[in-house]
């Protein structure tokens, strides 16, 4: 028994100005869309995992997942009956895949019936941020117990510590890079994201290496893969996978450029697009690929039993 993907939902800012920067609101809307597609009530969620990296005001506690759970109405005050457990994981562009792996494990062991992974990234403060280039966005994936043999077959992570410092982000108390209205640069807590010139090419190279290693481990050939749902960051990664592997043309999901640069939510947007376009339903062996700083590549192989 494993976990089956039931639905996906995505959200980008729109509407009120407040919603533009609010990760929790985006996450809740993405989660609601996903739950609606799955035909599932929030109260049925046994676990809610938030895998955001860049959060509202760089909040440290509680887990952002708790706020999402509350606003979603997923058993916010259970006094007997169903309960929901929420927590945050941080795993860069691999977060959504890691979250799905955790939920797959919980469903496989009979701990829960349904779970949701939600991921979002927002610029915590447009003023006190340096190097943030990602689009504010959120994606959610609902998973449930598989009753038809579809589901995850294998997960694997490859870590390349020799590239540990190629991408870093931190919040440091230092001089505001911009002057205030009286021309003074004051000390502030500033989020700074730094990426080396080599990060992009290293991430591409290590992704290709990881795909080869993984396919060898599962005893498959690149030609056996029907669909790849990859991180959309670094920009151009999906196209590079298509070019440098023998997976084949048109089998790697590319999220359109008008969505901007998507970070941790990239694979979620890819999944949503694949479902919407009908490619998901036609694909049997589906490969999820995530890339994180550190450098880390996550892979998840999903078997989709196609109904004739």
């Amino acid at each position: 028994m494993s976990a089956k993907i039931e639905s996906a939902g995505t959200e980008v800012p729109g509407g009120t100005p407040l919603a533009k920067r609010n990760a929790i609101a985006l996450s809740v809307r993405a989660a609601r869309k996903s739950l609606k597609s799955a035909g599932l009530e929030p109260s049925k969620l046994g676990v809610l995992i938030n895998s955001s990296v860049y959060k509202d005001e760089n909040i440290g506690e509680p887990a952002v997942a708790a706020f999402i759970q509350r606003d979603l109405g997923a058993n916010p005050m259970p006094m007997g009956g169903a309960t929901t457990f929420s927590f945050d994981i941080i795993d860069g562009g691999c977060g959504l895949i890691t979250g799905m792996e955790i939920i797959d494990g919980l469903i496989s062991c009979g701990e829960i019936e349904h779970g949701i992974v939600i991921t979002s990234d927002v610029n915590p403060s447009s003023r006190y941020t340096v190097g943030f280039k990602f689009r504010n966005s959120a994606a959610a994936v609902v998973l449930g117990r598989s009753d038809d043999g579809s589901g995850f077959v294998r997960f694997r992570q490859y870590e390349y510590l020799e590239h540990h410092q190629e991408f870093s982000s931190n919040v440091t108390f230092r001089k505001d890079p911009r002057k205030n209205f009286v021309g003074v640069r004051r000390m502030r807590n500033i989020l700074t994201i730094e990426e080396s010139k080599e990060f992009r090419s290293l991430a591409m190279d290590r992704s290709m290496d990881s795909i080869s290693l993984f396919l060898e481990e599962v005893g498959m050939d690149a030609g056996d893969i029907d669909l790849v749902i990859p991180s959309q960051y670094p920009v151009g990664l999906p196209q590079e996978i298509e070019k440098r592997t023998r997976i084949g043309t048109g089998k790697v999901v590319v999220v359109p450029k008008n969505y901007g640069v998507l970070y941790s939510s990239g694979p979620g947007f890819g999944l949503h697009r694949a479902i919407k376009d009908g490619i998901w339903g036609r694909s049997r062996n589906i490969l999820f690929l995530g890339v994180s700083p550190g450098l880390k590549v996550s892979l998840g192989l999903y078997l989709n039993l196609i109904k004739e």
């Binding site: 990296v53 760089n58 795993d91 540990h164 410092q165 870093s168 931190n170 919040v171 994180s292 550190g294």
Partner: peptide, 13 residues
Amino acid sequence: IGGSMMIEPLISM
């Protein structure tokens, strides 16, 4: 870590 709040790469790494 070193006076900053580290976000990435992961502390576990």
